[in-house]
Amino acid sequence: MSNANQQAVAKYKNNFLKEVEANVEEGHWVKMCMQCGVCAGSCPLGPHWEHSPQKIFMMIRAGKREEVLGSDSMWMCTSCYNCIVRCPRKLPITHIMHGLANYSHRLGLAPKGQPTREIAKLFWDNLVKTGRVNELKFSLAMYFKDGFGQGVKNAMAMQGIGLGLMKAGRLNPMEIFGGHVCKDKSGVQKMIAKAREIEDRRKSLA
């Protein structure tokens, strides 16, 4: 168990709802859910994931901490916003799902190897280096995340799209030599570090 996780368990004891309200983005909305089922029935991913948002919210209220935070359900959300548009209580469901994913990741409870999580991590690492996303490095990192052989296969398969992006000026092969950066790279990095520090303090994640 990670240190932050142990602290959270100790602090909130069996009140997982309180923990979610305090530490998860938009988590204070969870108690407003009236279990109508519209989000579950509206989600295009519905048949494919284990727990619908409706069920996740009920599980939170029922104190099923491990099942929720260890679940890969919230990582499946594609941010289509269908649920938010239809929810009769106007819960910001999409944001709660992402908030839960982020929280479980920070506690080290998120499922290992979950593809959305892996991509999110690559994206983040890529972004914080220079303050700008380097599309080429990001794509390559994604292709090669499962080893060299698989990476070459992936790159070949995506060749057409890559060429299309290059033609449209969205992908520059010269980016491999460093690429474009923010004017004040270290300033951006400091800002992100500070934001992280504040968030960690607030959510006892340090």
């Binding site: 279990q35 109508c36 089922g37 579950a40 029935g41 519905g46 048949p47 619908s52 409706q54 069920k55």
Partner: peptide, 11 residues
């Protein structure tokens, strides 16, 4: 009619 039954979360 499409939806999810709250009693058991069946689609």
């Amino acid at each position: 009619l499409h939806g999810v039954n709250t009693e058991g979360y069946h689609r």
